[in-house]
Design a protein around this nucleic acid. Structure first.
Lengths: 216, 216
DNA sequence: TCCTTATGTATGCGGTGTATACTTAGATGC
DNA sequence: GCATCTAAGTATACACCGCATACATAAGGA
């Protein structure tokens, strides 16, 4: 369907709206996003967007839904060449933080935003992303890599990586002499988490000191 | 200054605005908060609030500033009867999660919200809260309780408790058969974190299983 | 007492979400 | 080919919002 530019009915307004909306979201947050402004930017009347989204909340909900899906894809892609269950967990965190750092506005929407009326699609895509997370730890448990019950490991791993993501995009890591590189943060968090949940008794100081370079 | 009700100039409009604003914030989020609505609710003209706050952002910034201070107080109060540095860390997490669960809207404002122009007061009160957090781990380090460098411990502890707070108020803990009690969550997260950062080599399964009751 | 200042009011502008009725272009059936 | 249906966009209107500006009034100090 080779829709040429400047079509009679704009061709694909819905897609264009979503694209422009994400841009506005990253720049001004959910409050600054305006359907009228979007219409204006796309050279269309103020009411046109309402042909494709019931209201502003519906647009944000759709953004959040695809946001969850993209977060999940990013984690899965990152895990592609993992060397084992523990490494999968590490790479999952890397994907999580890469997503947060490259789309902070979308990340904040996906999580710290409560729509007035939630949609089943959003909930489902969220649960799917979470399930990916939980499965990785289930696998660790099956391979006997965890010291305690899997729920503890899941709770800590997820909390830690989720919190690190927020601290990173809120620029709260400025308090440490630490590169804000998402990969470095994810690896650092993972290593320490792993010492807390792994069934292998940790050796003495096995982790790099803060003066030493961090794993790339 | 015994200001009677229904004073000529309302008595303390500024305080009343802040109080009502926090209520609106919890109910409808920052976007749903409206200065005009606040004025209406307090029986005052639509422009009156602007005598006390330069704009909506200024009101939210003030809410965030006091939010940080209250978060800090809650942590400090909770730590009052700690039995040691490690226990202080645990109780700090308890205070953190208690604050998040009792004021989720304020918590989200304090963290996941980016004002257009930040104020030094907000930044300072935020840094003060963070400093409290970091100091507790500095103390742990001084007492030789940490396995690695203090930065790792700080990053993990903060990320974990911060992430757990968000997961809790976003109702993402529903995926586990776990009571959403902030104290239980904080203790659980702390125990697992501590195994990852403590210099004491953890014994075999020392933590309660998910089938066992959690620490009160 | 008078005058300054803080506080609240009145009013208005532009922007926003959203409902409604209208128009038009593409697709569809004969 | 043509009439028709429908999806997509327009025009317009309303209430609300943030915010600015000019005005009114009450408090408090000289």
């Amino acid at each position: 369907m080779f829709c040429s530019k400047k079509a009679y009915h704009h061709g694909d307004l819905r897609g264009a709206l979503l694209e422009a909306a994400e841009e506005q979201l990253e720049e001004e947050g959910p409050a600054g996003l305006s359907l009228r402004k979007l219409g204006r930017a796309l050279g269309v009347s103020p009411g046109a967007p309402y042909r494709h989204f019931e209201d502003k909340d519906a647009l944000l909900t759709e953004l959040a839904t695809t946001g969850f899906k993209r977060l999940r894809s990013m984690m899965i892609d990152e895990m592609a060449d993992a060397t084992g269950a523990a490494d999968r967990l590490r790479l999952l965190g890397v994907g999580y933080l890469k997503f947060a750092s490259s789309h902070p506005g979308l990340f904040r929407l996906v999580f710290g935003w409560m729509p007035a009326a939630d949609s089943p699609e959003r909930t489902e895509s969220g649960d799917a992303a979470f399930a990916t997370f939980l499965e990785v730890l289930d696998q660790c448990a099956k391979e006997g890599l965890l010291r305690h019950d899997v729920m503890n490991a899941q709770l800590l791993s997820w909390s830690a990586i989720h919190g690190a993501a927020f601290l990173m995009i809120d620029n709260n890591l400025k308090l440490w002499p630490m590169t804000p590189d998402p990969v470095a943060i994810a690896n650092r968090v993972h290593d320490t988490v792993w010492e807390g949940i792994s069934s292998q008794t940790p050796k003495a100081p096995s982790l790099q000191d803060s003066t030493l370079p961090m794993r790339p």
